[in-house]
């Protein structure tokens, strides 16, 4: 298959089109502008609808509507813009609608700046908006995965009728790498959306809402959601493991950060230091099982969590290990990225 050299942002857009996305609404923001630009020039040719909305909030609500009508719909933005979308994401989760939201993270808080960061982990994995809900969160670490994961995100969103989020960062969005583009539009899994609002002539009207008036109804609905979330946690954990069999120090990192951690692991191995790597691919559901298994089976000396934040995913690692293993942390944010040297030094000091 022929490879093309494209940016992470373009790969996400092309990946979405190949996954059968036919509706995109968004509002420009750096560092994800190549994504919306690509959609503006390609989606319509493929029979889709592209809208540059008047705001991020308008865009997410357009996605809410398009998804209710049964089409594969998405929006994208970067951190401050994703904050604006939270109300809509909560409504989509509450209405049990599939949709894909892409966050190419930049440094915060507030308007922050356009440099890469991973400081929206809490927001992405804990819901972000109001209410007890979760988005399925996927974290690509290469431009190839940026393309590939769009298909996974749309499939999971449809399967569970739940919003799915792609969590990347400015570095991943901006960088170019060779990508194998597979033409998959003819192989799109057709999940029948009997719940969609497609015109009710000759059938009972469908109702899509996140509003429950009668006493007890909302609790019952929440219990249904929780059942679904438990199922997702059980079945959809994804991660990449490297040298886990005999690792004494296990590095934990996701997205672009995992690439740098992987280089550090390879260097440490070449110096005889038994290190390994867990790269969570789904951030929610967090890949708990592998941590539990490792903590029991061969008790590593320590887990070292590395993030482009001041410590967010590290909380999930601590939660899952329940004090059964030592957890260390290395993080920088605001545009700073932990370097390979910093990681190596930290491991050597453990």
């Amino acid at each position: 298959m022929k490879k093309v050299l494209i940016s992470g942002n373009e790969a996400i857009a092309e990946g979405a089109i190949q996954a059968g996305c036919t509706f995109y609404a968004g509002y420009p923001i750096t560092p994800q502008n190549e994504l919306i630009a690509y959609m503006s020039s390609h989606l319509q040719d493929k029979g889709g609808v592209f809208i540059q909305a008047e705001s991020e909030i308008a865009a997410i609500n357009m996605v809410y509507g398009a998804s209710a009508a049964g089409v594969r719909a998405m929006t994208s933005s970067s951190s401050p813009g994703i904050s604006l979308k939270q109300e809509g994401i909560s409504y989509i989760a509450g209405a049990e609608l599939p949709a894909v939201i892409v966050n190419i993270m930049r440094a915060g808080p507030g308007l922050g700046n356009i440099w890469p960061a991973q400081s929206d982990y809490f927001q992405a994995t804990r819901g972000g908006g109001n209410g007890d809900y979760h988005c399925i969160v996927l974290a690509p670490a290469s431009v190839q995965e940026s393309f590939d994961f769009m298909r996974v995100a749309f499939d999971l969103a449809d399967k569970y009728r739940n919003p799915a989020m792609i969590l990347g960062d400015g570095m991943l969005g901006q960088m170019m790498e060779p990508v194998k583009i597979s033409n998959t539009r003819n192989k799109i899994s057709k999940i029948k959306k009997s719940w969609a609002l497609t015109g009710c002539k000759g059938r009972k009207p469908n109702i899509i809402k996140s509003f429950y008036m009668r006493e007890g109804d909302l609790e019952r609905f929440n219990l249904t959601l929780q059942k679904k979330y438990n199922q997702i946690q059980e079945k959809e954990q994804r991660f990449e493991g490297l040298f886990l069999d005999d690792a004494e120090v296990i590095l934990v990192a996701y997205g672009s950060m995992a690439r740098i951690a992987k280089s550090a692991v390879k260097f440490l191995r070449s110096k005889g230091k038994k290190s390994g790597l867990i790269r969570p691919i789904t951030l929610w559901p967090f890949p708990k099982d592998i941590f539990k298994r490792l903590a029991i089976s061969h008790k590593p000396l320590a887990f070292l969590v590395i993030e482009m934040s001041y410590g967010q995913m590290v909380e999930d690692v601590r939660l899952v290990l329940e004090g059964k293993a030592r957890v260390e942390f290395l993080g920088r944010s605001g545009g700073g990225i932990p370097t390979e040297d910093e990681i190596i030094k930290k491991v050597m000091r453990l």
Binding site: L5, I114, M171, Q174, M175, E177, P178
Partner: peptide, 23 residues
């Protein structure tokens, strides 16, 4: 950078190209 990166891709090498995208 893009020309060099494209040529490296054609030669089957691993390659990344990262632009300055500041203000």
């Amino acid at each position: 950078g893009k020309i060099l990166a494209q040529a490296a891709m054609i030669e089957g090498k691993f390659v990344t190209w990262l632009p300055a995208y500041g203000a």
